[in-house]
Design a protein around this nucleic acid. Structure first.
Lengths: 311, 311
DNA sequence: CATATCGATAGCTTATCTGCATCGTAATGA
DNA sequence: TCATTACGATGCAGATAAGCTATCGATATG
């Protein structure tokens, strides 16, 4: 018996459906099935009546449910109490991140952090990597999530690589301009109607450089978009775009193809002031970011991987 | 955070000493150290002040302790409640085992089972494998732990191999008749003063056959001993003996040497009637036996391994 | 009768955990 | 003062378990 199994059990009990519970738990359905059956084997009793009209609790399941809830509640209490003790009852974290990260990784980080420590004040600065580092140096930020092509910052800051992420080509799932395939070459992309980011994006520099290096001129139908707008345009079939794999998470309206040849990647790193000792709240935020990044990498499959040097 | 870590934490907290807690938990000290530090990392707080004069709880540790205890108690309650539900509030298990097994594996099985299900009546029959199978056939036993050299029983019973165990040569740790070494040859053993079991033991048949096959005549100083007596004689330096590796667990007064050449082994199997459906209590006993056997194999190192076919 | 839904199973890969050996440090005794 | 001992931490290798994808079987539903 372990707490994850109990959590899974409670979720299935309240939803009455393995598949949906698995979704909610960010778990594949077979994994959930196995967790429950492991728990059943361990306890020596069936916990659910499996029927197509939903899974309902057996007598044993009903006996387990209240205690399972209490154990999970106790676990949450422990975290809460220790957080209070660590001085996380109040405090502030000022996080900076690039726009691409804000709608994906950062969203999850902040919601997880806020759920765990609701009393901590959160500030977010959405800027390009360059500006973020300036703010960090000026003491206006505690932490910054940046994309490090140039690791020139390593002098003044402690920079920890988190994720290495491929850039992929996205298109509408409704009217893809090309047939589905494993990879697409850069010159093929150049021939497709393309939507590109505003030139303030770090990403824009990377893709521009890649096309220029290949002697290609992309067929840009729309320029200057911010991330969210760009994704909507692509979803509507206005064109394709080159984006980090991460933004695809929870975007079912998009299809993606990996770039063939030398894959374009970006490294997402966490920067913090080298000299200042982090507060308790900031330290916990670092952990949250590291854990969330790992979870993203696991969920995204091969298009993203944990950077070798983690914390 | 998981229940094992919490159990370890509680144990360390009450003993104030990692090494001793590890012993009590049947865990190596490094493993315990890692469990605690994993828990500390997870909770973001040190739980113990490590000092040579003992490890004491930090404020965070003190906050955790009562909740940890409650969660563990809840886990125990769950098992207890479900056991009641499964009809384990009363019942009976009649277990048979060979004498060698009774003082080692069976002792642990029965104490674990009784701790979990105190209301179940336990009967133990200590006999040779042959007689045990007769009792099983006569319906006088529910389960029998036997050593299967001859798998002739497979017809009438369901026989599940549990462990394959080497026979080793033991001697007193105080006055070993030979210098410590990796293995010892059978002819060397024959030359040493030896204590052998009563001829009613299955083991006796195995060792006699091995010596005979090698054309050797062992120097028997004492014959006819029962297991416990034999071990005491060996501890006092009266002679050496050939015993299953299992009996060495928790016998610090003995040193053992593995037999060189073709190692003598015995396979410990669980036999049950093929036709009768087991009661809930008997089924749980089977699980307990399987789990304990696995734990033994893990603890005993290379001289014992789990049989390939395990439930 | 074809299809969709739902949970279980198989095979594989990856992450975690355990144990052994060893280290570093602080208290103890000669 | 220095060797010894006790205790917890760490590096490494092997074993265990947990995850995912793909697929299956069974049961409702159109």
């Amino acid at each position: 018996m372990n707490l994850e199994q109990l959590g899974s059990f409670v979720e299935v009990a309240s939803l009455g459906n393995f598949t949906r519970a698995a979704d909610k738990l960010h778990l594949a359905q077979p994994s959930l099935s196995r967790q429950i059956s492991a728990l059943e084997l361990d306890l020596g009793a069936e916990l659910f009546h499996r029927a197509r009209s939903g899974s309902t609790l057996t007598t044993a399941g009903e006996a387990l449910l209240p205690l399972a809830r209490r154990m999970l509640a106790d676990a949450a209490s422990v975290r809460h109490e220790l957080a209070e003790l660590a001085g996380l009852g109040r405090g502030r974290v000022r996080l900076g991140a690039t726009p691409t990260l804000c709608i994906s990784l950062v969203a999850e980080v902040l919601s997880a952090f806020h759920a765990a420590h609701p009393a901590i004040e959160l500030h977010l600065s959405e800027q390009g990597s360059r500006l973020l580092l300036d703010e960090l140096a000026a003491g206006e930020l505690d932490l910054a999530l940046i994309t490090t092509s140039d690791a020139a910052a390593a002098e003044r800051f402690t920079v920890t690589p988190l994720l290495v992420e491929e850039l992929v080509v996205i298109s509408s799932i409704a009217s893809p301009p090309v047939t589905p395939r494993a990879t697409i070459a850069l010159d093929e992309v150049a021939a497709l109607p393309q939507i590109v980011f505003s030139s303030t994006y770090d990403l824009r520099r990377t893709t521009d450089a890649a096309f220029r290096a290949a002697g290609l001129t992309p067929d840009v139908v729309l320029e200057g978009a911010e991330m969210d707008a760009l994704l909507r345009f692509v979803e509507r079939g206005l064109g394709v775009a080159i984006v980090p794999a991460m933004v695809l998470i929870d975007r079912p309206g998009l299809r993606s193809v990996r770039l063939g040849g030398p894959a374009l990647t970006r490294t997402i790193s966490l920067a913090r002031p080298a000299d200042v000792a982090p507060t308790a709240a900031v330290e916990v935020m670092q952990h949250t970011i590291a854990a969330t990044a790992t979870a993203f990498a696991a969920r995204a499959g091969t298009s993203m991987r944990r950077a070798s040097i983690v914390r």
